[in-house]
C-alpha cells in the first residue's frame, strides 16, 4: 500500500461517512423540530449558491453574461436550454473578448 492509496481510501471513507451520516444521525429522532425542518429546506439553495457566487465574483464579462443569460432562461425554460444558452454565450464572448 502506497501513501497515495491510503489518502484515496481515507478520502473515500470520509466522503461516505458524510453521505450516510446525516441520515443515520437524523433518523434517531422521531420528530423533526420546525427549526430543523426549516434549516433542511434551506439546504439546497444555501449550498448550491456557494458553488456559483465566488465563481461569478471572480468572473469577467463572458462569465457574468453567461450566468445572467442562463438565469433569465431559467425563468422560462428547463435545465437543458438554460445550460446550453449559458454555454453558448460564454464561448462566444470568450472568443470575442478573450
Amino acid at each position: 500500500m502506497t501513501v497515495n492509496l491510503w489518502i484515496i481510501l481515507g478520502g473515500a471513507l470520509m466522503t461516505y461517512v458524510a453521505r450516510a451520516g446525516g441520515h443515520l444521525v437524523l433518523s434517531r429522532f422521531k420528530t423533526i423540530h420546525p427549526r430543523v425542518q426549516a434549516g433542511l429546506d434551506a439546504v439546497p439553495a444555501a449550498v448550491l449558491t456557494t458553488l456559483v457566487a465566488p465563481a461569478a465574483f471572480n468572473g469577467g464579462l463572458p462569465e457574468l453574461a453567461a450566468l445572467l443569460v442562463a438565469g433569465l432562461v431559467a425563468l422560462r425554460a428547463g435545465m437543458i436550454p438554460l445550460f446550453l444558452a449559458g454555454a453558448v454565450v460564454l464561448i462566444l464572448l470568450r472568443q470575442l473578448v478573450g
Partner: peptide
C-alpha cells in the same frame, strides 16, 4: 453531504 443525506434520507 451530511445535510443532503439528512434531507433526502427521511
Amino acid at each position: 453531504h451530511v445535510l443532503y443525506s439528512a434531507a433526502i434520507g427521511r
